[in-house]
Amino acid sequence: MRAIDRRGARPRPPAVRLPSRNALLAMADALAVRSGWAGREREASWLLSARPSAVQAARRLAVARLSAWGLRRQAETAEVLVGELVSDALRRCDGRIRLELRVEDGLLRCEVSGVFAGAGARPGPAPHRSLLARLACCWGVCGQVAWFELPAGRACPGHSRGVD
């Protein structure tokens, strides 16, 4: 028999907190990486919900994928920069946020895009320019996409820094 409290109501069972869609996406991708399903290709893309959990999920996705690609040295820097770009997108975004990672021509390229609010609104890493300039090989904003590049090898090719 179940206990009854002073008001005559039965106590509710503790609430179960389900993980967010972003957290589930990050967990599923980490499982794919660990099982070897996601380490051979050199391009990956994820669609994140425009919620605060997107920042942590994007960071986890980037680190797991870069580790699977053998780019552990770049993972820490990419984690910081991905978090900054996704945070910026969250402040400006109305819909979903796309995170893309690609390795080609000796560079790791990360792009963060979304459906941004307002006709003139653009993703703009303005508060993060100094961080991007310090850590990224090059970076910029083109339309509704904010991006950065890191060297995937030893040295950064002679790319320019700044906004397109």
Rank of each mutant, 00 (worst) to 15 (best):
S67P: 10
R65N: 14
G83L: 02
A68Y: 02
A50R: 07
Q74I: 01
A64W: 03
A58R: 03
G83K: 00
A78G: 10
S49L: 09
A62G: 09
V63A: 14
V80I: 13
P52K: 09
R72M: 10
G83V: 01
L61H: 05
E76N: 03
A58K: 05
L81F: 04
V55Q: 08
L81A: 10
E79Y: 02
A54L: 02
R72S: 13
T77I: 11
A78D: 11
R73I: 09
S53Q: 13
A57P: 03
A62R: 04
P52A: 15
G70P: 06
V55L: 10
L61V: 13
A75F: 02
S67L: 12
L71M: 10
L61N: 06
V63W: 00
S53I: 10
S49K: 06
A78N: 11
L61C: 11
S53Y: 06
A54E: 03
A68N: 05
L71K: 05
R51K: 06
A64Y: 05
R60Q: 12
E79Q: 11
A62Q: 07
G70W: 07
G70R: 09
R59C: 11
L71A: 09
S49V: 08
A78E: 13
L66K: 00
A58M: 11
R51M: 09
L61P: 03
A62F: 01
A64K: 04
A68D: 10
A62W: 02
A68Q: 08
P52E: 14
E76G: 06
A64R: 07
E76V: 05
V80R: 07
S53H: 09
A78Q: 08
Q56C: 15
A54R: 00
A75Y: 01
R51G: 03
L81C: 07
T77P: 00
L66C: 03
R59Y: 05
R73H: 14
A58Q: 08
E76Y: 00
E79A: 14
R65P: 10
G70N: 08
E76R: 05
V63D: 07
A58T: 13
G70Y: 05
T77C: 03
A64T: 10
R72C: 07
A57G: 10
S53K: 08
G83T: 03
Q56A: 15
A68P: 03
V55A: 10
L66M: 06
A58F: 08
S53M: 11
L66V: 06
T77D: 07
R65W: 11
A78M: 11
A50C: 12
R65K: 14
E79C: 12
Q56S: 15
V55T: 14
R73W: 12
L81K: 02
A54Q: 02
A78T: 14
L71G: 01
L71P: 00
R51V: 08
V80W: 01
G83R: 00
L66E: 03
A78I: 13
S67T: 15
G70I: 15
